[in-house]
Simulated scan of single mutants.
Amino acid sequence: MTNRKIILFASAVLTASVASHAAMAVGDDTSEPPKKTKTTTQCTNGKVWDAKQNKCVEAKKSSLDDDILFDAARELAYAGQYENAIKVLGAMKEQHSARVFNYLGYANRKAGRMELGMQYYKRALQADGNYILARSYMGQALVEQGRIEEAKLQLVEIRDRGGENTWAYRALLQSLGGLRHY
């Protein structure tokens, strides 16, 4: 293999790696709010729907994997069931991931515990500085606190990390009144 081919190959691998990392940072949970499932329409007290058992189950005692539990927690949070969302997030094995910290931030903030929510957003960004949904939610919290300049900085960070065409960016932009003052 010639040096030119090696360089081209290495460049292609690096480009694919960066693109893959950016896509993972954006993540599947940066889209619109989830649709309601039996977790929010039939289950109560922090239980989640187990399709295999065809019933509501205790998250901690279930054999549900982290992705199913995360989706359930996200759905509960968006449905306004913040304490139930926190309970389900606590049942996950992956306790130190950006996505778990982010939704702990979201649920706590929405439940009226702003400072705790902000701490979780910071932990999410410590776990993954490219996790733009945490930047969006943190920015929205900053807007709620009247800290507009800091929220704008999060908007710039989202843009600079390749997230300008995402729900996370649009949601924070909307919170800022739709104005792009970089």
Rank of each mutant, 00 (worst) to 15 (best):
Y169G: 05
L155D: 01
L125D: 09
A168W: 00
K152R: 15
S62M: 04
V100H: 12
N45M: 08
S175T: 11
A107C: 07
D71E: 13
S63E: 13
D50G: 02
K87G: 02
M118P: 06
A85P: 03
R147T: 06
V48D: 11
K122V: 05
E144Q: 13
A111Q: 10
R170I: 00
L64F: 06
E149N: 14
C56L: 01
A79V: 04
Y169S: 01
M138V: 01
E164P: 00
K60W: 05
F101W: 11
K52N: 13
V143M: 10
F101D: 09
I148T: 15
D71T: 08
A79G: 08
V156I: 11
S136H: 06
E157I: 03
L155E: 06
A134P: 09
L172N: 09
N84Y: 10
K55R: 14
Y121E: 08
I68W: 02
G163C: 03
A151I: 08
L89W: 11
Q145V: 07
D50Y: 03
F101K: 10
A72M: 03
M118R: 11
N108M: 05
K52T: 13
A51I: 05
R170W: 09
L155P: 07
Y78H: 15
N130Q: 10
Y169N: 03
S63I: 09
A134Y: 07
A151F: 05
E94M: 10
Y121K: 08
E164D: 08
L155F: 09
H96I: 05
L133C: 01
G117W: 01
N130C: 00
E157V: 02
K87T: 12
Q140L: 14
S63L: 11
G117K: 03
K52L: 12
Y120R: 04
D71V: 04
I158R: 05
G163H: 03
D50A: 08
M92I: 11
M138D: 13
R159H: 13
G129A: 10
V143R: 03
A127M: 07
K110I: 06
F70R: 09
M92H: 10
Y131E: 07
E150Q: 15
G117I: 07
E83W: 04
K87Q: 13
S175R: 12
M114P: 03
M114N: 13
R123Q: 15
N165T: 07
G163R: 02
R170S: 14
A59L: 03
E164G: 10
Q154F: 04
V88S: 06
L64C: 06
E94F: 08
T166R: 00
N54Q: 13
V88E: 12
K47S: 12
A151R: 03
E164M: 06
V143P: 10
A151T: 07
L69I: 01
S136F: 02
V156L: 13
A127Q: 13
R159T: 09
Y103F: 15
L76D: 06
R123P: 01
